[in-house]
Computed example of a mutant assay.
Amino acid sequence: MADCSSKLSDSTAAISTVDEYGGATFSTVHPDIIQTHILTRLDGPTLASAACTSSQLHALSCQEKLWTDICHSTWPSTTAPRLRHLISTFPDGPRSFFSESFPPLSDLEPTTTTTASNTWRYHHRPSELISAVDIYYRGKLMFSKVVETETVSGWFRCSPFRIDLLEPKDVVTTPIRYPNGDNACGQLSEEFTLSWIVIDPRGRRAMNLSSHRPVSVQRHWLSGEVHVRFASVLTGERGSSSEYVQWGIVVTCGGSDSGDMQVREVSLLAEDMDGMHLNGGDSLEHLQKDEFLTRAVDTTLTISSS
């Protein structure tokens, strides 16, 4: 982000120099030059900041293609055909989607409050949830997938809430070498990042439930598999055991015979602070409550080997 801000500052400084010595003004720079040589080099937060500097930049920064490209580069899963169409139907298209999905909820300040427009408020529950998941290791995409989950059946409402990206026997082999040795957990905790965006296609709402970086990394004592956990702790129903709800994401990794890293399990679960799993019906209620997005509690990174 600092690099993008520097590019924007350098470009602005260059334009100001022309204004001082050559009599030109910012408005004389052709909009195509600004869009193709400056704004396309910025990430989402920097582009949003640039839009606040002038009415001209605001108009140029609101172009749908700019935000579509940013969404696709930030979350490759959003290139899926259905998501491309769905994101275009958000109130402000990809710009709305980006503002709701970035940053992850765990990055919000504990005192952050949200308006009704930032919460999932409906007269009817969503009939399905769409998960858009992207996993990176050392800045390289190692896994990306979109999963649709129905939410109307009795099985979903009464069973513990759980979304699995892989079937039980599915394994995704990556070109990344699996780290071995005593420092494997430490390497994974520093180099792993994950985004899990949950989307309600009916209400045109989205939220990122990942902590972005792991909150714990543990190696199983018998199998040798490493469990990388991400989590966001959010407010639920006040005065109850579920006043805080933890949305946990577990990525199970192992090594292939050739030494490549394999992704063997990726799942999302919901628990109250007593460690009890919430069922699908209760989980949807928490997604709909006004209090749900009012506060995110930071979690502490722990690295251990069990």
Rank of each mutant, 00 (worst) to 15 (best):
L83P: 07
E109H: 13
L194G: 01
E285A: 15
E190K: 15
G275W: 01
D182P: 07
P110H: 03
M1P: 12
V263Q: 08
H227V: 05
A13W: 12
G181A: 09
C4S: 11
L194T: 08
K65T: 14
V245I: 09
T151C: 07
W247Y: 14
T113K: 12
L42R: 03
A13T: 13
T252K: 04
C4M: 06
F102R: 05
V147K: 08
N183K: 11
D19K: 11
T74A: 10
C158E: 14
S189W: 08
R205I: 03
I130P: 00
L129F: 09
A184V: 01
H85K: 15
S216L: 03
H58G: 15
G254T: 07
A24N: 04
H124V: 14
Q56I: 14
F192R: 04
D298P: 15
I38E: 06
C158Y: 12
R138V: 09
C71L: 10
K7W: 09
L86A: 06
S101H: 03
H286S: 05
K169W: 10
T53W: 06
H124R: 15
D182W: 10
L42G: 08
P168E: 05
D200F: 05
G154W: 01
L234N: 09
P45H: 02
S127G: 10
G280T: 04
L293D: 10
Q246H: 15
T193S: 12
P168Y: 04
L39Q: 01
S258P: 08
M207L: 15
A24S: 05
D290L: 12
C253H: 00
L284R: 01
G248Y: 04
S6M: 13
C185H: 00
H37G: 03
I303N: 07
Y122S: 12
Q35D: 10
S6E: 13
H220F: 09
V147I: 09
F156A: 02
F192E: 05
S267G: 03
N118A: 14
S195Q: 07
F292Y: 07
S210W: 05
V228F: 06
H85S: 15
D290N: 12
S283R: 08
L57Q: 04
V245W: 00
F292D: 05
D282W: 07
P126R: 00
L108H: 13
D182S: 14
S159P: 02
H124Y: 13
Q187G: 04
K65V: 13
L222F: 14
R202F: 15
E109Y: 11
R125M: 11
S241K: 13
R138Y: 09
S61M: 04
L284M: 05
L284Q: 06
W67P: 02
S88Y: 03
E167T: 13
L47P: 01
G259L: 11
H30N: 07
P104C: 05
R162D: 00
T235W: 07
I163S: 04
K65G: 10
S27P: 00
L8Q: 02
V245T: 06
C62Q: 14
W155G: 12
R204A: 04
E291S: 13
D274A: 12
G23F: 05
R264Y: 00
H220L: 11
T173I: 09
L287Y: 06
H58Q: 14
N183R: 10
